[in-house]
């Protein structure tokens, strides 16, 4: 499994492609909704693209727990 930095970099690319948020603004402590202004539909698109990129499964129920970029990175790292 990729290390945290690789996952963060990959996730930042996905977020950038979906929302236009700058790659360097996608940091571990940032909240998807509060800081990055990502809505629920974009979040789902990011989740599906992350599943494909990292070869993991992120169930619908789990998406609600992914509040920050760090939450998503940790989930992917441990999946």
């Amino acid at each position: 499994m990729a290390d945290q930095n690789e996952i963060l970099a990959g996730l930042a690319e996905i977020v950038n492609e979906e929302t236009g948020v700058e790659v360097e603004d996608v940091q571990l402590e940032k909240s998807f909704t509060e800081d990055l202004d990502i809505d629920s539909i974009s979040m789902m698109t990011i989740v599906v693209n992350a599943e494909e990129k990292f070869g993991v499964t992120i169930p619908d129920e789990e998406v609600k727990n992914l509040k920050t970029v760090g939450d998503a990175v940790n989930f992917i790292a441990n999946a």
Binding site: I41, M44, V48, D60
Partner: peptide, 10 residues
């Protein structure tokens, strides 16, 4: 459940 339906629909 909008998120669930969105993922399935797309």
């Amino acid at each position: 459940d909008g998120q669930k339906v969105f993922r399935w629909a797309v």
